[in-house]
Every structure is written in structure tokens, then in C-alpha cells.
Computed example of a mutant assay.
Amino acid sequence: MPQRLVITERSHEPRKRFAEELRRLRGERGLSLRELEREVGWDSSLFSKMESGGTLGGPEVVQALDQYYGTAPLLLTLWELALADPMQFKEQYRRYMMLEAEALSLWQYSVSAPPGLLQTVGYAREALAAGGARGKDLEQQVEARMGRRKLLLEGDEAPPFRAILSEAVLRMGLRDRSAWRQQLEFLAEMADRPNITLHILPFDTGVHGLTNTDTMFLRLLDGRTVAYTENDVRGELIEETDRVERLQRAYDAVRDLALSPAESRLFVLRMLEEVPCEPST
């Protein structure tokens, strides 16, 4: 009879499990945070935040720790699981996030902000802070949003994504002009990816069926399409076929009004020219 495995008391939540493993490995070496800083080269405050669950850190520091502890690829695997864990999102969004991660294709209309899948770190941080997020909660939400972005950046397995952005998305910039420039550059870069189709809907097209509603559609493995609509105060996952079909007809009408992908990329580049570069020092 095979020997029974011992069940540990370690957390089954990926983010907590990652932090626990970091603490365990440092404890086994008998290192202080300052000593780990000297050994690995990153600031001890970052290690402290990672071990408390305040941040996940980036892939470079996690790979460096894996190499130092001789655990590769354990820590990087735990980091990736924590980054993709839907439990890090607020409860009302978790079901949508799980469906998004499994979607075969996605298409979206955005009213006034880039979709989360196309946001830079700088944009996400300022937008979430404007919504009231602070401190540890802010950093966790930024990391969660960046984790979602991996969905579009996984090479041959990345799903097709079509995004229609109202011109308002490109007009409502950030207070940090450097961060806003990086966001526009990122949109132009993403528009060149083979799995991403970007449209801009100019102001002069007038009112339409999605004027005030951010809308995302997901085509799922079972052949269904679901929709998620959101405004400033609430979001709703829509699975009823007739409601989804009505939204799709509205979306198709908006797409017919939008600029072509080539025209849209040029539009983004023209907007980029209007943002001053940071003065050289």
C-alpha cells in the first residue's frame, strides 16, 4: 500500500500560499530581510510586502528568489497561480473573471476608459486610486488587473480580442502626462498584435445603442456567448440569450460606425503627438 501523503496546514489560496512559501524558505535559511536583500539584490521592503501578501512582486524578482533558493520553477509557478487567481478580484466580479479567462474570443465597447485588458500599470493605478483604492488594496487591484492582461499576451494561445473605443477614451487623459503617453503608446503597440483588432469611434458619429454602457462579450467553450455591462455604479453579467443578442446587434451597429483598424491606429498616433514628451534632464 502506498504511503499516505501528509496534509499540510498551508493555505489553499494561491496568494497566501505564495507568501507562506516565501516566509518558509527565508526562515529555513535563517535570514533576515536585510540579509536577503544583500544576497539577492532587491530592497528588503519589497520582500517584506511579498511575504505579508501586500504585493506579488514582478517575475524578475521571483525568478531571482527561485534561483537563490534552488527551488525553480516552484516560486514562479506559485506566483503565476496567484496572479491569475480570481479570488483576488472583488466578489461581484469573480464569476465574470473566471469566464473571461476561459473565453475563446472577446469583444468590447469602451465608453470613457481603456478596457482593463489594454491598460498600463500607470493608467490602472491612477484610475483605481481615483475610485478610492488606497495602500495595499490599491496595489493588489493593480496587480490583479495586470494579471488579466496576460490573457492577451500568451503567444499562439492568446484569444482574439476586438475593442471599440469611444474617442472619449483618448481625450480623457491622466494627470500624469508621462503615464498617459505610455498608455497611448501601449494602445498603438497592441493594435499591431495579430490577435487584437482596435477600432476608434469618433465623436461625430453621434448617439448609438451603447452610448453610456461599457460592454464586453465572451464566446465560451460550450458555444455560448455571455455579456458583461458596466457603468460607474454597477456591473452585470448577462447570460440570457435574448438579452445578449440585443446587445450584440447594438455592438455590430457601433462597429459599422467606427474607423477601420488602420485608420484607428493612425488616430491613436495623432493623439500621441498632442501629448508633450517629458523634458530631458
Rank of each mutant, 00 (worst) to 15 (best):
R38A: 07
L104K: 13
L31W: 14
L118A: 14
V6K: 14
G30R: 15
V207N: 09
M146E: 07
E240A: 05
D156Y: 02
A158T: 01
P59D: 04
Q67V: 13
A84K: 04
E20K: 00
E239K: 11
P86A: 11
E189N: 07
E51S: 02
E236N: 12
R177I: 12
S32N: 06
L56D: 06
L81C: 02
E51M: 13
Y251L: 07
W42G: 03
E60A: 13
L184E: 00
L76T: 08
P2H: 06
L259Y: 13
L198S: 02
L75N: 01
G173P: 03
V244G: 06
G135K: 09
H12A: 09
M97G: 01
E236K: 07
S44K: 12
P86L: 02
P14F: 03
L259I: 10
R219H: 11
T8R: 11
L170D: 00
A64C: 07
Q183D: 10
V111H: 04
Y228C: 08
A127M: 11
E91D: 13
G27P: 07
A133D: 15
L247P: 12
G116R: 11
G155M: 00
P276K: 02
Q92N: 04
S280A: 13
Q108M: 06
V226C: 06
V40E: 00
S48F: 04
R243P: 07
Y96C: 02
P160Q: 01
E21F: 07
L76K: 14
G131A: 15
M190I: 05
V226F: 06
D214V: 10
L269T: 09
N195G: 05
S11F: 00
I7S: 07
L269W: 03
E80T: 01
L5W: 09
A258I: 13
Y228G: 04
I238W: 13
A250I: 08
G30A: 12
A253P: 01
L5Y: 08
G131K: 00
N231W: 06
R148A: 12
G57D: 06
V244E: 04
L25T: 11
P14Q: 02
D242S: 13
L106M: 14
G235T: 04
A124V: 04
P276M: 02
G57E: 00
E230N: 08
T205Y: 07
T281P: 08
F89L: 04
